[in-house]
Computed example of a mutant assay.
Amino acid sequence: MTIAEIISNIFLPISLAIIMLGMGMTLILSDFSRILKKPKAILIGLTNQLVFLPIIGFSLAIAFNLHPVMAVGLMILATCPGGATSNLISQVCRGNIALSVTLTAISSIICVFTIPFILSYALDYFGTETGATIKLPILNTIIQIMGITILPISIGMFIRRLKPDFARRMEKPMRTASTVIFIIVFIAVLAANYNILGKAMKEVGLPTLLLNILTMGLGYLTARLFKLNLKSAISITVESGIQNGTLAIVIATSILNNFEMSIPTAAYAIWMFITGGILMWFFGNRTEEEYTAQQSRK
Protein backbone atom coordinates (compact mmCIF):
# COMPACT_ATOMS: atom_id res chain seq x y z
CA MET A 1 0.00 0.00 0.00
CA THR A 2 1.42 3.39 -1.02
CA ILE A 3 1.67 6.44 1.25
CA ALA A 4 -1.18 8.09 -0.68
CA GLU A 5 -3.39 5.03 -0.17
CA ILE A 6 -2.58 4.86 3.56
CA ILE A 7 -3.47 8.54 3.94
CA SER A 8 -6.70 8.41 1.91
CA ASN A 9 -7.94 4.97 3.02
CA ILE A 10 -6.89 4.85 6.69
CA PHE A 11 -5.52 8.05 8.24
CA LEU A 12 -7.99 10.54 6.73
CA PRO A 13 -11.22 8.58 7.43
CA ILE A 14 -10.21 7.83 11.03
CA SER A 15 -9.16 11.44 11.67
CA LEU A 16 -12.37 12.82 10.22
CA ALA A 17 -14.52 10.33 12.13
CA ILE A 18 -12.92 11.50 15.40
CA ILE A 19 -13.61 15.11 14.46
CA MET A 20 -17.22 14.24 13.58
CA LEU A 21 -17.60 12.69 17.04
CA GLY A 22 -16.52 15.95 18.66
CA MET A 23 -18.73 17.87 16.28
CA GLY A 24 -21.71 15.80 17.30
CA MET A 25 -21.19 16.87 20.92
CA THR A 26 -22.02 20.44 19.86
CA LEU A 27 -25.33 19.45 18.23
CA ILE A 28 -28.85 18.62 19.37
CA LEU A 29 -31.80 17.29 17.37
CA SER A 30 -33.48 20.69 17.20
CA ASP A 31 -30.50 21.99 15.17
CA PHE A 32 -31.52 19.65 12.34
CA SER A 33 -35.27 20.00 12.73
CA ARG A 34 -34.91 23.77 12.48
CA ILE A 35 -33.24 23.67 9.05
CA LEU A 36 -35.57 20.95 7.78
CA LYS A 37 -38.62 23.04 8.69
CA LYS A 38 -37.13 25.95 6.73
CA PRO A 39 -35.29 24.24 3.86
CA LYS A 40 -34.27 27.44 2.03
CA ALA A 41 -30.65 27.09 3.16
CA ILE A 42 -30.52 23.45 2.05
CA LEU A 43 -31.91 24.29 -1.41
CA ILE A 44 -29.44 27.16 -1.86
CA GLY A 45 -26.53 24.98 -0.79
CA LEU A 46 -27.50 22.05 -3.04
CA THR A 47 -27.99 24.37 -6.01
CA ASN A 48 -24.47 25.69 -5.56
CA GLN A 49 -23.01 22.21 -5.14
CA LEU A 50 -24.88 20.27 -7.81
CA VAL A 51 -25.65 22.92 -10.44
CA PHE A 52 -23.32 25.92 -10.27
CA LEU A 53 -20.17 23.94 -9.42
CA PRO A 54 -20.23 21.74 -12.59
CA ILE A 55 -21.19 24.75 -14.74
CA ILE A 56 -18.26 26.80 -13.43
CA GLY A 57 -15.89 23.85 -13.86
CA PHE A 58 -17.06 23.29 -17.46
CA SER A 59 -16.75 27.02 -18.25
CA LEU A 60 -13.20 27.17 -16.88
CA ALA A 61 -12.13 24.10 -18.86
CA ILE A 62 -13.31 25.80 -22.05
CA ALA A 63 -12.01 29.28 -21.15
CA PHE A 64 -8.48 27.94 -20.47
CA ASN A 65 -8.62 25.58 -23.47
CA LEU A 66 -7.40 22.75 -21.26
CA HIS A 67 -6.01 19.54 -22.66
CA PRO A 68 -8.94 17.07 -22.93
CA VAL A 69 -7.57 14.85 -20.15
CA MET A 70 -7.13 17.83 -17.81
CA ALA A 71 -10.57 19.15 -18.77
CA VAL A 72 -12.23 15.87 -17.86
CA GLY A 73 -10.16 15.74 -14.66
CA LEU A 74 -11.49 19.17 -13.72
CA MET A 75 -15.04 18.00 -14.44
CA ILE A 76 -14.54 14.91 -12.27
CA LEU A 77 -13.62 17.23 -9.40
CA ALA A 78 -16.58 19.51 -10.11
CA THR A 79 -19.02 16.59 -9.84
CA CYS A 80 -17.79 15.55 -6.37
CA PRO A 81 -19.12 18.12 -3.88
CA GLY A 82 -18.83 18.08 -0.12
CA GLY A 83 -16.94 15.58 1.96
CA ALA A 84 -16.25 15.37 5.68
CA THR A 85 -13.43 17.94 5.40
CA SER A 86 -16.03 20.62 4.72
CA ASN A 87 -17.77 19.76 7.99
CA LEU A 88 -14.48 20.11 9.85
CA ILE A 89 -13.82 23.55 8.33
CA SER A 90 -17.39 24.70 9.02
CA GLN A 91 -17.00 23.71 12.67
CA VAL A 92 -13.78 25.68 13.16
CA CYS A 93 -15.30 28.64 11.26
CA ARG A 94 -18.27 28.56 13.67
CA GLY A 95 -20.67 27.95 10.81
CA ASN A 96 -24.00 26.13 10.90
CA ILE A 97 -22.71 22.61 11.52
CA ALA A 98 -26.11 20.94 11.17
CA LEU A 99 -26.55 22.57 7.76
CA SER A 100 -23.05 21.55 6.69
CA VAL A 101 -23.60 17.91 7.68
CA THR A 102 -27.01 17.84 6.01
CA LEU A 103 -25.63 19.26 2.75
CA THR A 104 -22.74 16.79 2.75
CA ALA A 105 -25.04 13.82 3.30
CA ILE A 106 -27.65 14.80 0.70
CA SER A 107 -25.19 15.94 -2.00
CA SER A 108 -23.05 12.82 -1.54
CA ILE A 109 -26.04 10.60 -2.22
CA ILE A 110 -27.41 12.66 -5.12
CA CYS A 111 -24.02 12.89 -6.86
CA VAL A 112 -23.96 9.09 -7.17
CA PHE A 113 -26.66 9.60 -9.81
CA THR A 114 -25.44 12.90 -11.32
CA ILE A 115 -21.77 11.95 -11.78
CA PRO A 116 -22.32 9.32 -14.53
CA PHE A 117 -24.54 11.72 -16.51
CA ILE A 118 -22.20 14.73 -16.28
CA LEU A 119 -18.98 12.81 -16.89
CA SER A 120 -20.40 10.91 -19.84
CA TYR A 121 -21.19 14.27 -21.43
CA ALA A 122 -17.75 15.66 -20.55
CA LEU A 123 -15.94 12.65 -22.00
CA ASP A 124 -17.92 12.98 -25.20
CA TYR A 125 -17.52 16.78 -25.43
CA PHE A 126 -13.78 16.90 -24.77
CA GLY A 127 -13.09 13.88 -26.94
CA THR A 128 -11.61 11.49 -24.40
CA GLU A 129 -14.12 8.68 -24.55
CA THR A 130 -12.53 5.75 -22.72
CA GLY A 131 -15.31 3.24 -23.18
CA ALA A 132 -15.49 2.84 -19.41
CA THR A 133 -18.84 2.46 -17.71
CA ILE A 134 -19.18 5.18 -15.08
CA LYS A 135 -21.08 3.48 -12.30
CA LEU A 136 -20.58 4.37 -8.66
CA PRO A 137 -21.40 1.84 -5.92
CA ILE A 138 -24.47 3.34 -4.26
CA LEU A 139 -24.39 1.06 -1.21
CA ASN A 140 -20.67 1.58 -0.58
CA THR A 141 -21.08 5.35 -0.90
CA ILE A 142 -23.91 5.39 1.64
CA ILE A 143 -21.90 3.17 4.02
CA GLN A 144 -18.92 5.54 3.68
CA ILE A 145 -21.10 8.54 4.53
CA MET A 146 -22.57 6.70 7.50
CA GLY A 147 -19.21 5.55 8.83
CA ILE A 148 -17.29 8.82 8.53
CA THR A 149 -19.99 11.39 9.28
CA ILE A 150 -23.46 10.32 10.38
CA LEU A 151 -22.52 7.52 12.83
CA PRO A 152 -19.82 9.41 14.81
CA ILE A 153 -21.95 12.58 14.84
CA SER A 154 -24.88 10.56 16.20
CA ILE A 155 -22.64 9.12 18.93
CA GLY A 156 -21.45 12.62 19.79
CA MET A 157 -25.04 13.87 20.00
CA PHE A 158 -25.87 10.93 22.30
CA ILE A 159 -22.96 11.89 24.56
CA ARG A 160 -24.23 15.49 24.54
CA ARG A 161 -27.65 14.26 25.64
CA LEU A 162 -26.26 12.11 28.48
CA LYS A 163 -23.40 14.39 29.58
CA PRO A 164 -24.23 17.97 28.52
CA ASP A 165 -21.67 19.57 30.86
CA PHE A 166 -18.88 17.32 29.56
CA ALA A 167 -19.89 18.08 25.96
CA ARG A 168 -19.76 21.83 26.57
CA ARG A 169 -16.32 21.55 28.21
CA MET A 170 -15.02 19.59 25.23
CA GLU A 171 -16.22 22.11 22.62
CA LYS A 172 -13.12 24.33 22.70
CA PRO A 173 -10.57 21.46 22.91
CA MET A 174 -12.27 19.70 19.98
CA ARG A 175 -12.17 22.86 17.89
CA THR A 176 -8.45 23.14 18.63
CA ALA A 177 -7.99 19.45 17.76
CA SER A 178 -9.86 20.02 14.50
CA THR A 179 -7.43 22.77 13.55
CA VAL A 180 -4.42 20.60 14.38
CA ILE A 181 -5.76 17.64 12.39
CA PHE A 182 -6.56 19.96 9.49
CA ILE A 183 -2.90 21.07 9.41
CA ILE A 184 -1.66 17.47 9.68
CA VAL A 185 -3.94 16.35 6.84
CA PHE A 186 -2.75 19.26 4.71
CA ILE A 187 0.88 18.24 5.24
CA ALA A 188 -0.02 14.62 4.49
CA VAL A 189 -1.73 15.65 1.25
CA LEU A 190 1.38 17.61 0.24
CA ALA A 191 3.58 14.59 0.96
CA ALA A 192 1.31 12.15 -0.86
CA ASN A 193 1.10 14.31 -3.99
CA TYR A 194 4.66 15.63 -3.93
CA ASN A 195 5.66 13.90 -7.18
CA ILE A 196 2.89 15.42 -9.27
CA LEU A 197 2.38 18.80 -7.62
CA GLY A 198 4.75 20.60 -10.00
CA LYS A 199 2.97 19.27 -13.06
CA ALA A 200 -0.43 19.84 -11.49
CA MET A 201 0.23 23.51 -10.71
CA LYS A 202 1.80 24.11 -14.11
CA GLU A 203 -1.07 22.61 -16.12
CA VAL A 204 -4.15 23.39 -14.02
CA GLY A 205 -2.98 25.57 -11.13
CA LEU A 206 -4.84 28.72 -12.16
CA PRO A 207 -8.09 27.03 -13.32
CA THR A 208 -8.34 25.04 -10.08
CA LEU A 209 -7.64 28.13 -7.98
CA LEU A 210 -10.37 30.04 -9.82
CA LEU A 211 -12.76 27.12 -9.42
CA ASN A 212 -12.18 27.22 -5.67
CA ILE A 213 -12.49 31.00 -5.30
CA LEU A 214 -15.48 31.38 -7.65
CA THR A 215 -17.50 28.58 -6.05
CA MET A 216 -16.82 29.85 -2.54
CA GLY A 217 -17.60 33.42 -3.55
CA LEU A 218 -20.82 32.41 -5.28
CA GLY A 219 -21.83 30.30 -2.28
CA TYR A 220 -21.46 33.27 0.06
CA LEU A 221 -23.17 35.73 -2.31
CA THR A 222 -26.21 33.52 -2.92
CA ALA A 223 -26.57 32.82 0.79
CA ARG A 224 -26.54 36.51 1.66
CA LEU A 225 -28.69 37.42 -1.34
CA PHE A 226 -31.42 35.15 0.04
CA LYS A 227 -30.88 36.68 3.51
CA LEU A 228 -29.45 33.68 5.32
CA ASN A 229 -27.67 34.40 8.58
CA LEU A 230 -23.88 34.46 8.85
CA LYS A 231 -23.51 30.94 10.23
CA SER A 232 -25.49 29.44 7.35
CA ALA A 233 -23.65 31.62 4.81
CA ILE A 234 -20.31 30.32 6.14
CA SER A 235 -21.41 26.70 5.83
CA ILE A 236 -22.70 27.18 2.27
CA THR A 237 -19.48 28.98 1.34
CA VAL A 238 -17.40 26.09 2.64
CA GLU A 239 -19.64 23.38 1.17
CA SER A 240 -19.51 25.10 -2.24
CA GLY A 241 -15.71 25.30 -2.34
CA ILE A 242 -14.48 22.18 -0.50
CA GLN A 243 -14.79 19.13 -2.75
CA ASN A 244 -14.59 15.39 -2.12
CA GLY A 245 -11.09 14.83 -3.49
CA THR A 246 -10.97 11.20 -2.37
CA LEU A 247 -14.03 10.33 -4.47
CA ALA A 248 -12.62 12.29 -7.43
CA ILE A 249 -9.36 10.33 -7.32
CA VAL A 250 -11.24 7.02 -7.13
CA ILE A 251 -13.27 7.94 -10.22
CA ALA A 252 -10.20 9.02 -12.20
CA THR A 253 -7.89 6.16 -11.28
CA SER A 254 -10.20 3.21 -10.58
CA ILE A 255 -13.26 3.81 -12.77
CA LEU A 256 -11.78 5.67 -15.74
CA ASN A 257 -8.32 4.08 -15.29
CA ASN A 258 -6.52 7.34 -16.05
CA PHE A 259 -4.08 8.58 -13.42
CA GLU A 260 -3.53 11.90 -15.23
CA MET A 261 -7.19 12.78 -14.73
CA SER A 262 -6.49 12.97 -10.99
CA ILE A 263 -3.94 15.79 -11.49
CA PRO A 264 -6.54 18.62 -11.23
CA THR A 265 -7.72 17.12 -7.93
CA ALA A 266 -4.14 17.19 -6.57
CA ALA A 267 -3.83 20.89 -7.48
CA TYR A 268 -7.28 21.71 -6.11
CA ALA A 269 -6.54 19.95 -2.82
CA ILE A 270 -3.73 22.40 -2.16
CA TRP A 271 -5.87 25.44 -2.94
CA MET A 272 -8.87 24.28 -0.90
CA PHE A 273 -6.70 23.63 2.15
CA ILE A 274 -5.15 27.09 1.81
CA THR A 275 -8.47 28.92 1.36
CA GLY A 276 -10.11 26.72 3.99
CA GLY A 277 -7.29 27.59 6.38
CA ILE A 278 -7.78 31.29 5.69
CA LEU A 279 -11.51 30.98 6.44
CA MET A 280 -10.75 29.08 9.65
CA TRP A 281 -8.33 31.79 10.75
CA PHE A 282 -10.67 34.65 9.81
CA PHE A 283 -13.93 33.30 11.23
CA GLY A 284 -12.56 30.94 13.90
CA ASN A 285 -10.80 33.73 15.81
CA ARG A 286 -13.98 35.70 16.32
CA THR A 287 -15.73 35.56 19.67
CA GLU A 288 -19.29 34.38 20.23
CA GLU A 289 -20.26 37.99 21.00
CA GLU A 290 -19.00 39.12 17.59
CA TYR A 291 -20.98 36.37 15.93
CA THR A 292 -24.12 37.24 17.83
CA ALA A 293 -23.77 40.86 16.77
CA GLN A 294 -23.52 39.80 13.11
CA GLN A 295 -26.53 37.49 13.18
CA SER A 296 -28.79 40.30 12.07
CA ARG A 297 -30.27 38.48 9.09
CA LYS A 298 -32.61 35.66 9.94
Score class of each variant (00 low, 15 high):
Ser30Asn: 15
Phe182Ser: 08
Ile142Thr: 02
Phe113Lys: 14
Leu197Glu: 03
Leu43Gly: 04
Ala132Trp: 00
Leu211Met: 14
Ile196Trp: 00
Gln294Glu: 09
Ile234Asp: 07
Thr2Pro: 13
Leu230Tyr: 13
Met1Glu: 01
Thr176Arg: 09
Met201Asn: 08
Thr265Cys: 05
Pro39Thr: 06
Ala267Asn: 01
Thr222Trp: 01
Lys202His: 14
Val72Leu: 03
Asn195Phe: 03
Leu139Gln: 01
Arg224His: 15
Gly57Leu: 05
Leu21Thr: 04
Ala177His: 03
Ala84Glu: 00
Leu210Asp: 00
Ser235Asp: 13
Gly156Met: 03
Gln295Thr: 02
Pro81Ala: 11
Ser120Leu: 03
Leu16His: 08
Phe158Pro: 15
Ile110Lys: 13
Met201Thr: 06
Lys199Leu: 15
Lys231Thr: 14
Pro13Arg: 02
Asn9Ser: 12
Met20Ser: 05
Ala233Pro: 13
Ala98Thr: 01
Thr2Trp: 10
Ile249Arg: 06
Ala4Ser: 05
Pro39Trp: 09
Ile242Val: 10
Ala293Pro: 12
Gly131Ser: 09
Met20His: 06
Arg160Pro: 06
Thr246Glu: 10
Ile76Ala: 06
Phe58Lys: 11
Ile106Gly: 09
Phe64Ala: 04
Asn195Lys: 09
Lys227Cys: 12
Gly95Leu: 00
Ser33Glu: 15
Leu247Glu: 03
Met20Asp: 05
Gly217Ile: 07
Val189Asp: 07
Glu5Leu: 07
Lys38Ser: 05
His67Phe: 11
Gln295Asn: 12
Lys298Val: 14
Ala192Gly: 05
Ala188Tyr: 02
Ser59Met: 08
Leu77His: 08
Leu27Lys: 11
Trp281Leu: 14
Met261Leu: 00
Leu66Glu: 14
Thr128His: 13
Asn140Gln: 07
Gly83His: 14
Ala192Gln: 05
Ser235Trp: 06
Ser178Cys: 10
Ile19Glu: 10
Leu230Val: 04
Met146Lys: 04
Lys199Ala: 01
Ile6Cys: 02
Leu221Arg: 06
Met1Asp: 08
Gln49Asn: 02
Asn257Leu: 05
Ala223Trp: 03
Thr130Tyr: 00
Asn229Phe: 10
Asn244Glu: 09
Leu256Tyr: 00
Ser154Thr: 15
Thr114Asn: 09
Ala192Leu: 03
Leu60Lys: 01
Val69His: 15
His67Asp: 15
Pro81Gln: 12
Gly57Asn: 11
Ile18Leu: 07
Thr128Phe: 13
Leu53Asp: 00
Thr222Gln: 11
Ala4Trp: 02
Ala98His: 02
Asp124Glu: 14
Leu50Gly: 07
Met170Ser: 11
Thr208Met: 03
Leu46Val: 09
Asn193Gly: 10
Glu260Gln: 07
Thr102Phe: 06
Ile55Pro: 14
Leu99Arg: 14
Tyr268Pro: 10
